[in-house]
Write a protein that binds this DNA or RNA. Structure first.
Lengths: 241, 241
DNA sequence: ACAAAAGTGTTGTACGTACACCCATGA
DNA sequence: TCATGGGTGTACGTACAACACTTTTGT
């Protein structure tokens, strides 16, 4: 048995089905989360932008924004490009989700490196773009390729990560009340949280800085906070950058 | 601004540096963890197999086992193949780690999908293979490419995951004592654990089944346990398989 | 008998949850 | 004045760390 470790040459092994690598193409897609408050007095909803396909594999269906990886472009850079082209915004959080490479996930052989991102809700309703629509992440239509599974996984990661990191701040503008922040958690987790306990938890975490401002408008004014940028939104282990 | 979502065609965007995708090749590598008990009365050590490169990029240096992704081969299948070629063993745990795709991580453009795996220590010392050597994971030489960073990240994931899942069982044979299991945790985490508290924690988790066997030899005999295969080694969210 | 590991019991602290209660504002 | 959300106080239960203690073997 031969040991194959070379990254610069490949010798056929046992089976002829291990064909040349040139047939494999690399794509980068991104699951972009934002928040949309329905015009009424509703709770905010987690939304993601999808793009309608205009070509043959799954023509007409909705798909995640993405594109081919450029030859002089890193993975994260490709995801950022995707994101800018779709939303026109800079993400407050961007992380690799997973690499999908099943043989039958596309008619041709495609390995998709999928990222997920958060964008603040400020201007995310900036629809100067054709063929882009924002969907409620919990009520998606049938998407192209395996993109439904991918979004499910991204949602799972989001809900998971919100429990042990401070990424929820990445969905809010610079100034916000504790009720705003709690609503983000509630929208992501899908359940109500106790306001009193939530306050103490997040106040004790050292990630919030109280300001002198208050939000007035209804009932007792609520203090405005801003995010403490000394702490990272999420730890990523010993990964580059 | 044009929105690009097509997975089947790529139109050049703004810059000519986004060249054709055919130059990009996809490799799969695997960080394989096992345990090695030094012959003396030592604590077990976390070890990984490395392969000496015999070709030009980083010729002679040690590198992670891996190879080119086959055209008819899924990502996980490619990692399994790698693993079998290196150790001759079936993994007790196999999970995708990360996709590395920086432009300058190799002289040619290579995107590496990296997996990490656990193999039980039974036969992992089966060195019928050339150019393969097992190294203490905490004392590695300088490796080829960015493989030192990759191993660091895999070690971080291992230490992390051992805290909230039962993957430690994946490093032990079918029957083991609580002291065996505790030693695995101690080897991975690098610190001693209280035997009394450890016992209660793991007994209460429902993942262990006590057998009638005991291990004798020194002092009071210890009960042998086996793993409860009804529970998964680790939850993976809504991922396929 | 003694050393050492196997195994049990007890206690204190930290933290999350539930919920009662007061405060400040708009209407 | 009342309704409502902002904000504080408190009691309970679980989880975990620390550590004293008993049990069972080999030597």
């Amino acid at each position: 048995m031969t040991t194959r470790t070379e990254h610069a040459a490949s010798a056929p092994l046992l089976s002829a089905t291990l064909s040349a690598t040139d047939e494999i193409r690399v794509a980068v897609s991104t699951v972009i989360f934002s928040l949309r408050r329905s015009s009424g007095a509703e709770r905010p909803a987690v939304v993601i932008p999808l793009v309608r396909r205009t070509r043959d594999p799954h023509d007409g269906q909705w798909a995640l924004p993405g594109g081919w990886l450029g030859g002089a472009e890193g993975l994260e850079a490709a995801a950022s490009r995707t994101l800018a082209e779709t939303t026109g915004l800079a993400p407050s959080f961007l992380e690799q989700l997973y690499a999908f490479g099943d043989v039958d996930r596309s008619p041709s052989r495609v390995v998709s490196i999928v990222y997920w991102a958060l964008v603040r809700e400020d201007v995310s309703s900036d629809p100067a773009l054709e063929n882009v629509r924002w969907f409620d992440a919990t009520a998606l239509p049938e998407l192209a390729f395996d993109h439904n599974q991918i979004v499910d996984y991204a949602l799972w990661r989001l809900r998971n990560k919100v429990g042990y990191s401070r990424i929820a701040h990445g969905l809010l503008p610079g100034l916000f009340t504790l009720a705003d922040l709690r609503e983000v958690y509630e929208a992501i987790l899908g359940r109500r949280l106790d306001p009193a306990n939530f306050r103490r938890q997040v106040e004790g975490s050292g990630t919030l800085i109280p300001t002198d401002g208050f939000r007035t408008g209804s009932h007792r004014p609520a203090r405005l906070y801003r995010y403490n940028h000394d702490v990272e939104l999420a730890e990523r282990g010993p990964l580059p950058r």
